[in-house]
């Protein structure tokens, strides 16, 4: 555990609260891609299946392998799962009438199928849990695509949406730094699957980051994309 990893997780956690706050405050999910949020629930569901194992150990009072890091990870995993499912729930119940589904036109198979195939080929171990974990890593890298397409279609984003995108994009950039740090400090550390996927994921936000910083510099309220 290092400062880069902790700040990354806190930035990720902030992204959920920014989005939920925005949806509750404006009572609208306009400009938010349901498909991207749905992909995030799938990402965390496939990635955090080890929760059952950890929670199983806890309720059987088998604390031998429970460390502080395990508790931190378990707490955050439950938070991330709850927040991402809550967002999808909000978008399909209370805020359904304000959904932007008409413009949320990204074809999900274009990311689901390649990630599934890649996870079956490039993985650390050919086991169900490891393949699902790898699938979640690949899927998270491209899960923002529907949201980016919607942002391009809209041509602009209000400031909360742009802060949300900055947080959700920035957290993985901090993970890249965390991986460099761990590679440099831990003798047998290698995480090339997550590194490559994380690099692609951060690169996908590159264009957005550019316009986000331009907006910050120029003091504009809303993020403007070139028409």
């Amino acid at each position: 555990m290092n400062i880069f990893r902790i700040s990354a997780d806190l930035l990720h956690l902030a992204s959920f609260f920014i989005l939920i706050f925005k949806m509750k405050a404006t009572k609208s999910c306009k400009g938010i891609s349901f498909k991207t949020q749905l992909m995030y629930t799938l990402v965390f569901t496939c990635r955090y299946l080890d929760l059952f194992h950890v929670l199983g150990m806890m309720i059987t009072f088998n604390f031998a392998h429970i460390t502080g890091l395990t508790l931190y990870n378990t707490f955050m995993k439950i938070l991330f799962l709850a927040a991402s499912y809550y967002i999808v729930y909000l978008m399909r119940t209370e805020l359904k009438s304000t959904s932007d589904d008409a413009r949320d036109t990204f074809v999900l198979w274009h990311i689901l199928a390649p990630c599934a195939v890649l996870a079956l080929i490039f993985n650390a171990q050919f086991t169900i849990l490891e393949i699902l974990w790898t699938f979640s890593i690949y899927l998270e890298a491209v899960a923002v695509m529907p949201q980016l397409m919607l942002l391009i279609e809209t041509g602009e984003a209000d400031s909360l949406s742009s802060h949300y995108m900055f947080a959700v994009g920035g957290y993985r950039a901090l993970y890249l730094v965390n991986w460099v740090y761990r590679y440099a400090t831990e003798p047998y550390y290698s995480n090339w699957i997550a590194w490559i996927a994380g690099f692609v994921q951060t690169a996908l936000f590159g264009d957005f980051f550019y316009y986000y910083f331009v907006k910050i510099m120029s003091g504009d309220a809303a993020l403007k994309l070139p028409t």
Binding site: H12, N73, Q125, S190, N191, A194
Partner: peptide, 10 residues
């Protein structure tokens, strides 16, 4: 040994 690293990250 290629210790199968446990996923200790989120």
């Amino acid at each position: 040994a290629a210790v199968h690293r446990d996923h200790d990250e989120l």
